[in-house]
């Protein structure tokens, strides 16, 4: 039964992605992408990666979708020039060749991953029971620190180049009560995801994305005015994530002699502290990435 489901799911992903990429209407294209994202996050579940599924649904489909919808109308269509068929065929052949090469590379004999046994052996010392959290915040925390730096740079660039947007009109009488329901709910879900990340799927990124999603809905409904986005406090909160993570990494080196090496037995405390700071900072960053600066200088 399940293989059938998987095959249908896989086909649906391909079809919706093709639709998203080739449909002419902007909104339809973005909707196609959103559907692809949701189906993909379903497939992550089937591939045994619930943490990634949560992140894909919240960030990959949710926030990216919101960003795309925001911009879809503001980016004019390029005049579509019909490519010569020969070029089309060449590009198609190349794409098929690359896909074929990928399938062949992955299916032909390869060594088994070295990581699962290493992760399993070291999990008890890592301070997290959820292996994905252990990898993200302990074994390979350096990747995560650089990832936060990517968000920092993205925010800097967006604040620098984003066009000054007119204030959006508040969305009408039904949205405000909706926002009032939503606010406590996002805080609840965000907190839950953050706490749960230590032992079950979840963590700072998913929690931050949920918080940011709630805040963006509030911003669109007019409950949070554009005043807030103009204030420096939010920007400072956004950049605090990188600063705190970097300082924690150095502090750990002072204590234990290894960069990002948490003191023995205290790893859990360190991870929770870092994750809490990251959650708030990620939420603020994603919120500002969506709204950009209210005024450009």
């Amino acid at each position: 039964m399940l293989p059938v489901f998987d095959v249908v799911l896989a086909a649906a992903i391909l079809v919706s992605a093709a639709l998203a990429l080739w449909v002419r209407d902007r909104i339809a294209a973005v909707s196609g992408f959103l559907v692809t994202g949701l189906l993909v996050s379903l497939s992550w579940l089937r591939l045994g990666a619930p943490d990634v599924a949560l992140a894909e649904a919240a960030i990959g489909a949710g926030l990216t979708g919101a960003l795309l919808l925001r911009s879809a109308h503001r980016i004019p269509c390029a005049p579509s020039k019909a490519l010569p068929p020969s070029l089309w065929c060449a590009a198609g052949a190349l794409a098929i060749a690359i896909s074929g090469a990928i399938v062949w590379t992955v299916t032909s004999f390869g060594a088994a991953p070295v990581y699962p046994s290493l992760v399993a052996d070291n999990l008890p010392e890592s301070g997290a029971q959820n292996p994905v959290t252990a990898v993200l915040l302990n074994f390979r925390a350096w990747d995560t620190l650089l990832e936060i730096a990517v968000l920092f740079v993205a925010l800097t660039v967006v604040i620098m180049v984003a066009p000054a947007r007119p204030r959006t009109a508040p969305l009408g009488p039904l949205v405000q009560p909706f926002a009032r329901v939503l606010l406590p709910l996002t805080v609840l879900i965000g907190g839950h995801l953050l706490w749960q990340g230590g032992h079950a799927p979840g963590g700072a990124f998913q929690a931050g994305a949920v918080l940011a999603g709630g805040a963006i809905a509030l911003g669109l409904s007019g409950v949070i005015g554009s005043k807030l986005t103009r204030q420096n406090g939010l920007a400072l909160l956004a950049i605090a994530g990188l600063a705190i993570f970097a300082l924690a990494a150095l502090a750990a080196e002072v204590l234990t002699g290894a960069l990002l090496g948490y003191p023995a037995g205290e790893a859990k405390t360190w991870i929770i502290a870092i994750e809490s700071a990251l959650t708030l900072s990620i939420a603020a960053t994603l919120f500002l990435l969506f709204f950009g600066p209210a005024e450009r200088h």
Binding site: V114, L118, N138, F139, R140, L259
Partner: peptide
């Protein structure tokens, strides 16, 4: 060489 976080490669990252 510096082993980040005390986790040797391949699990961890090394400078």
């Amino acid at each position: 060489e510096q082993v980040i976080g005390g986790w040797a490669a391949p699990l961890g990252i090394t400078f």
